[in-house]
Design a protein around this nucleic acid. Sequence first.
DNA 1: GGGGTTACGACGA
DNA 2: TTCCATCGTCGTAACCCC
Length: 575
Amino acid sequence: MAGCNTISINATKAGMEGIDKEKINKIIEEASKGSKFYLHKEKSQARINKKIAELNAKKSTLGSEELDRAEKRMDKLISTLESVRDLSHAIIHIDMDAFYAAVEMRDNPELKNRPMAVGGEGMLSTSNYHARRFGVRAGMPGFIGRKLCPELVIVPCNFDKYTATSKVVQGIFSQYDKSYCMMSLDEGYLDLTNYLDNLEEADGEKPDVEEVVNELRRKVFEATELTCSAGIGCNTRLAKIGSDQNKPNGQFVIPADKEEILKFIHDLPIRKISGIGNVTEQLLNSVGVVTCSDLFEKRGMLSLLFSEISCHQFMEIALGLGCTDLNEYNVSERKSISTETTFKATSNQEEIHKILEELCEELSEDMKNKCLFGKQFTLKCKLDTFDTLTRQTNLAFCTNDSSIMLKTAKVLLEKEISKLNSFCVRLLGVRMSELLSDQETKKQVTIDHFLTAKKENSDVCPVCLKEIAYWTVSEFAHHVNKCIDTENGETSSESKVNSDTKISKENILKESEPLYNRHDRDEICTSKKRKLTTIPEMFKKKKVEKIVTCPVCNVWTVDECKSYELNQHIDSCLI
DNA sequence: GGGGTTACGACGA
DNA sequence: TTCCATCGTCGTAACCCC
Ligand SMILES: Cc1cn([C@H]2C[C@H](O)[C@@H](COP(=O)(O)OP(=O)(O)OP(=O)(O)O)O2)c(=O)[nH]c1=O
Ligand SMILES: [Mg+2]
């Protein structure tokens, strides 16, 4: 069993029905065997197999009374869930067909009659339906794609085009539901309940959902020349399953009726449900759960083997329940931002440092464009064995300054290198999290902007001990870090005093922590210094203020969430 | 024992 | 001949500090 699961492809994807799976798997196995990637895959499969063994060992110890009690407990959960079943919404899920590939084919008709894929030589992001018949699919490296299909054309990604096309599609979505909700560039949910009600009001007769969705898909096609598929159901889970049923260029309705839903769910393999992936499928299969109805039948056993959260999810699936309020999705704000890159594996320090520098600069640019500041930094390394490690640290303040990120990255990296005896990386990545909220950010940007005229704040640099005037904390931090570099000289890489420099860097970074906390004295500052109260606020990341005062006139106040008004006012104040 | 932090893995597009 | 991505979210487990 060990290797077969790891390499066999998933024919669950649309467009891959009736293909010669055996042959394809043989080709893939041939191409993968013995590679580091393959070895790593086998290692993870071994871990999964161990988990499966443990699960089944535990399962065999369960007594029948215990199972009965567990089942009763689950029945209570089920009746709670059942009591809030809501069949009143018409939720639809729209998913573009072979999205990236379709865009590329539209823009270059020569590709239309050829098997093609989008991505790099290293990895394919998706393929057109023609290529899928050869077994070429998303998440496959280019060279295997070529093995499966020698005529395969590989087109590089053009994210700007996909974003622009997505915007056009969204324009159509908004004609039907203003609060539609995109889950990615190529798929989104709409709640047509209101639209259908309004239609009925106007026409005096019940509109046909299928007709409306057909019309919507036609509009999408007319505007973009791209086809999409739709699922219609009374919650997002069902709608999502539906959009895959008649792909490509099709739609599918799950009627808003409990019995119909249960019938639809009954023989559905659990893997069709979004959230159940390769591993969970294997785990569940191993304890005899294959279809969604098995989840219900074996609920007692499952509740003793899986976590509460998992069981809750399993029961929702088994009952055909799901989210009926798209606003629950819409509140989500970005929580992290990152960039990473794969390269020819190396242990060369200078090379690694150079890559890190580029990554940090790119991340910094990205954050500046999006007006984001982060307080938590994570370094990610994938070794040449494909083992991945991440190291996280809290910064003393929010920043998007690339040199601060680079310094932090180097400190984290040093620590790892000194621990491991061999360190050969094939990927490096940097991520910032604990991000500032949008409103806070906008405040910060505006305030930074108008403060450029006068450098009012100052602090003593812990390194050079000079009084440094600054506008923003990150600027001050920048100075401190420059000082650290100067102190250490540029010799750190050649002279083997690495451990020394490392320690001193760490110490200084630590010392700078209370330094910034000293902004607590803002509380006893004059009104002019209060300008910078936004900075300590972002340390805490708790919601504190509801009202902000204009930092220019110091009189005008506004609700904190109305950052646009604040900006407008400040603009006028500055004139 | 909570409650926070960190690392890792699963998942999806 | 070689060759397997990138970005974001969430759940869990292990650890620490009370
Ligand atoms: C699955 C997957 C998709 N993508 C990108 C490319 C896809 O065009 C886009 C949408 O993903 P999907 O909707 O999963 O795939 P698709 O639209 O290409 O094909 P389908 O007809 O089956 O819906 O996301 C990746 O970059 N990596 C991946 O692993
Ligand atoms: Mg799609």
